[in-house]
Amino acid sequence: MKLGPEEKRIMDKMQPGILTVDGFLGNDNRNLHDIIQEDAEKVEALGYTAEDIGKRMQYLTERSKEAYEEPILIDQKYLVQQDIWRGKVVCPFPHKGLYVKADIHLKNIENGIEISWTPLNIHFIEEHGFFEGKGSKHRLDPETLIKAIY
């Protein structure tokens, strides 16, 4: 499908050096709706919804705050640690949205999978079904993410 002006505006904001150093699309040359669509299909095939995944990430993020910025073992299975910075980053989609600058690191001690995300990633997934473009440093491959957090 053709790239509309609204989608183009969002993709312009997602380029490197606009809102963040590397942007959100990596080296993925597809249009935003194709990126979102492919991941939506993957998530559905695995029996989840993006909203569920976002909520799960939010739960683990919130629980890890109990240890401030030290590591904490959650539900006997997830070793989580957060680095929280000052300031907030804006969402490139058209709505009011500011998200804490932080890096959340999780290790699933049952299967050894380690992943990291930011509060903006949670919002992207929950509200926009956006896992970021391929090659983006902060992309969360749905399959790996699901294996890590469930």
Binding site: M1, G4, P5, E6, E7, H33, E127, H128
Partner: peptide
Amino acid sequence: MEILYNIITATVISGSLSI
């Protein structure tokens, strides 16, 4: 997800308008 559908439906109308 809603945004995605909005993006798609808005494409044609706003495309010609903005030109």
